[in-house]
Amino acid sequence: MTIAAAEPVRFEDGSAVRVRVESPAHHFRTPAYIQGHVGVVDALCGVYPNPESLAHGGDGLPRQPLYRVRLRQTDLWPEYAGNPADTLLVDVYQHWLEAA
């Protein structure tokens, strides 16, 4: 069986996505404060080697689509005191996202 060099892009701009809740033992780049929250895909940034593999001497394959995801600050922080329109933009690899 050949392993795909890159995962196919699953989400479009504007797609609603939920960030998975996980804390694997290996290195990963999805901060805890966004996990479990729902946001909207702002843009596809590109398709990049998986840092969870690269960090442990792996080849980074299959590459993962990377999205800039927009989340509402008032969703992330119950006490948020700023403008309700304020958002947070964060880069998340596709395998950390599911359709919401």
Binding site: H26, H27, P51, L54, A55, H56, G57
Partner: peptide, 11 residues
């Protein structure tokens, strides 16, 4: 060494 390995080592 890769940047990701370095981050992992720092963490």
């Amino acid at each position: 060494r890769t940047t990701d390995e370095m981050r992992r080592a720092i963490e």
